[in-house]
Amino acid sequence: MRGLDLDYMAGLVPVILGYVPKTMAMASVAMVLALLLAALLAIVRVLKLPVIDQFVAVFISFFRGTPLLVQLFLFYYGLPQLMPTLSKIDGVTAAIIGLTLHFSAYMAESIRAAILGVDRSQWEAAESIGMTRAQMLRRIILPQAARIAAPTLMNYYIDVIKSTSLAFTLGVTEMMGAAQKEAAGSFLYLEAFLVVAVIYWLLVEALSFVQRALERNMQKAFAR
């Protein structure tokens, strides 16, 4: 057994760090889109809008019921067979779409639970002053639901960041893809994957720190 090639690892760190912005950009775009979609899906479910509600239920069931990797392959390699225009989509776009759909299904369920967690009296008070349903949701219910859902949604963001590593299977060179390429050239797999693992870990730890600070801050609000 030989020791780790520390010099190689030290040299690899800046290379992988160079891909952090790309990973974070993919994750953040997917997160924002997924949040918007999830909020819409959750509202459809809470209001039990006829017909659409059934579609949304099936959508959520599918994207929670199948692995993300399978979904990504289905979009990137499978769908162009049906719709040839899709073959022009690059790996980054496909990964963002896949992550968005996948995580929107999970987050829709969290947001739905959070909306249902807002006290019944808040809906009634909003009704009593003559608000429309859209006004109630936007002004009263969603702001309170956001507070309830925030910790869970932050966890999903962390999950999205880690899941971007699957984009390398679509030929995208992000942190994981870069590590893979480096390892393939040097045959130093352990070193390369160790470096990428530690960088993911530090990234997530930094975010968890921010998350805890935000949560402390949120507990303070509404109690002035």
Binding site: S121, Q122, A125, S128, I140, F222
Partner: peptide, 20 residues
């Protein structure tokens, strides 16, 4: 909605908007 806009309602449990 029109009916609600012509009536005011005071709740037993106050039901103030918690985020306002």
């Amino acid at each position: 909605l029109a009916l609600r806009r012509r009536t005011g309602f005071v709740f037993q449990n106050y039901a103030l908007f918690a985020n306002k």
